[in-house]
Design a protein around this nucleic acid. Structure first.
Lengths: 243, 243
DNA sequence: TAGTGGTCTAGACCACAGC
DNA sequence: CTGTGGTCTAGACCACTAA
């Protein structure tokens, strides 16, 4: 209890400094997996703060998966186990413009279906769907083909939108508060429509990203993005937490 | 201050109940994006607890990205914006056994290279590498082909390991504390060696997951896993936080 | 300027797991 | 039994910022 009874210090929050110190020791390898981290009361003495402050740092480290805490035993450096990676799904326009290429959007078709007549879009039976096909260009080259169904039960306004100039992705984002999504990534051989739409040879490999989105329990949209496989790749980074 | 001055209650921690209550209102759509969440002092009165307890719940919601907090204004429901998904990278043995199929591992080759003589493995120039090719089976079918380089600078013990029966993935995991990884996912057409190793037709689409791993700034390993594209898919879920 | 969140304290009791 | 982490309190001061 020497100092810092104020709510600030020279480097930001004290608990962040503690957290960062410990994380640094772990990431640098100084504290190997299995290493026992000093007890809370030791750290609170060392940093001259209350145990609550230490606890906040340690709890965040535990939540982020870097350490494991056991009652009566202490806290230990965990070894990286859950091979989780954060996959960033960018907006297609941004993705194209990040390549320094001009972006163009084209709507190919728009239909109203009723779920159940077509197994392909797994929505609640009888739900009416807007089914779209679109194309995104990077310069003169087709960048990806988008096939999408939007549930009119979840998004009634979609019935009045032609999507001729407005891509459905950005239109939906900000209009519908989805809160669950599932992505499925696979490789396919370009069939007849896709090959010509992407201007690639038939049977050439394509990367398909399928995303299904829910708002609560209500399905919102189901989109399949098909990219030429040899020119496009998805990047995911491992991140135990914020940098 | 009606009750619960004890450290426990009937449903677990109080801050978890508060957190769960708020998250429920957000995910159910009752509180739409932009909705202002009650102030900390209102919630602490409502739950009959101290502000610290409310703060812990709200801080976790903010860290998980569900809400946004602004001084002087309050806390607001954020709309899902960063299109991030969590991609789970499973151990291949577990992945196969989860399908109910017997797993088998086979080492195809093992060589010692020196980085620089071969651009393919981007390590520090002059670093010696163990370069492996392996195959993973699900039942009688090849499940995926693994091509891997391990830096002997980072993992000297790899020089004494034949990897004839021990797959390099699990061997490395737990031996080397990596702390950064980058994944790259793409689709390729099966070339000559891959097609026969995977027992698929030439030019058929394959899903390639390439993972590079560092320990601090030191490259540890670089692995390329090639799966038959039509039978294998990666699944990623959007998750604001634990369920 | 006023009111929010951000952080911190110096205690406290409890559950739980080793001993 | 003992000592750890888990949670909680009833305050406090501060930084930031919207009004």
């Amino acid at each position: 209890m020497d100092a810092r009874t104020d709510g600030t210090d020279e480097r930001g929050a004290l608990y962040l400094r503690i957290l960062s110190d410990i994380r640094g020791r772990i990431l640098s390898g100084e504290w190997q997996p299995g290493h026992r981290i000093p007890f809370e009361h030791e750290l609170s003495a060392q940093y001259g703060c209350s145990r609550m402050t230490v606890n906040k740092a340690m709890s965040e480290l535990a939540r982020s998966g870097l350490i494991e805490r056991r009652r009566r035993s202490g806290s230990f450096v965990k070894r990286p186990q859950s091979q989780a990676a954060i996959l960033e799904i960018h907006d297609i326009r941004e993705e194209v413009e990040a390549l320094g290429l001009p972006y163009r959007y084209e709507r190919l078709s728009r239909e109203i279906h009723t779920a159940g007549e077509n197994d392909e879009w797994p929505a609640v039976n009888g739900t009416r769907l807007v089914v779209l096909a679109c194309r995104h260009f990077a310069g003169a080259q087709p960048f990806c083909v988008e096939e999408r169904a939007i549930s009119l039960a979840a998004v009634p306004e979609a019935e009045d939108e032609s999507f001729e100039t407005q891509a459905p992705g950005p239109w939906l984002l900000g209009r519908v508060p989805w809160n669950a999504a599932e992505h499925r990534i696979r490789a396919i051989a370009a069939g007849d429509p896709i090959a010509s739409l992407l201007a690639v040879p038939r049977q050439s490999p394509c990367l398909v990203v399928q995303r299904r989105t829910w708002s609560g329990d209500v399905p919102v949209t189901d989109v399949r993005l098909t990219y030429p496989g040899d020119t496009h790749s998805l990047v995911a980074r491992f991140a135990p937490q914020e940098g």
